[in-house]
């Protein structure tokens, strides 16, 4: 464990906590894409398959359970909670997220480290996580005013993978130059997708004005 990866995990955890707080405190999920949240549940389910078969550390197991639990409860709130589900922007959150999942799965069948179920599904989760934010970014462009909590949620979500990129650079130089193209390139794509959001988020923060994404 290095400080970059710990910072990345904490940033990721904070983003999820902020989203849960927004939903529970305001009883609203306006501006949040259910498609992205569902993709994240798939990402965690396919990535943490060996949760009960491989014990790494107390931290690793705990964080996996927290990520699974929180992401599933967010989808539950947005789908089934009587008050929250009324606030879901169903008519704007129209991104066909299966169009994202299927190519990722096919790519994982083609490019992976070893052809086993666990490994292919793990690789699928890495590819899927890279593009899972797209429905959310599209929804942000459609929804005129973005509330602060939603903006902070997306920013922290993008920042976590950027910190992981730094972690991978650190590990490359400190752990006998092991190359790990699949997470590296996926993480690079994932972080790049946030580029224009980061630009508008930092601009709105500097000018102390409402966050607005150009349509």
């Amino acid at each position: 464990m290095n400080v970059f990866r710990l910072a990345g995990d904490m940033t990721h955890l904070l983003s999820i906590i902020i989203l849960l707080l927004k939903i529970r405190a305001t009883k609203s999920c306006t501006g949040i894409s259910l498609k992205t949240q569902e993709l994240y549940v798939i990402v965690f389910l396919t990535r943490y398959l060996d949760l009960f078969t491989k014990y790494i550390s107390f931290y690793n197991t705990t964080m996996k359970l927290v990520f699974l639990g929180t992401s599933i409860s967010i989808v539950w709130y947005m789908r089934y909670h009587k008050v929250v589900k009324q606030t879901y922007n169903k008519d704007q959150d129209t991104f066909r997220h299966y169009f994202l999942a299927i190519p990722c799965f096919l790519l994982a069948l083609l490019i992976h480290h070893e052809f086993t179920v666990i490994e292919v599904l793990w690789t699928f989760s890495i590819y899927l996580e890279a593009v899972a934010i797209l429905p959310q970014l599209v929804l942000l462009q459609r929804s005129r005013n973005i509330d602060n909590l939603t903006g902070n949620y997306v920013f922290l979500l993008g920042a976590y993978r950027a910190l992981y990129l730094v972690n991978w650079v650190y590990r490359y130089f400190t752990e006998n130059h092991l190359v790990r193209w699949i997470p590296w390139l996926s993480g690079l794509v994932q972080t790049t997708l946030y580029a224009d959001f980061f630009y508008y988020y930092i601009k709105s923060w500097k000018n102390n004005e409402k966050l607005q994404l150009p349509a």
Binding site: D50, I56, N60, M63, F67, H113, E119, N167, E175, L178
Partner: peptide, 10 residues
Amino acid sequence: QEREHLKDEL
């Protein structure tokens, strides 16, 4: 060993 290396990350 490559896969093992990946395993410790979330």
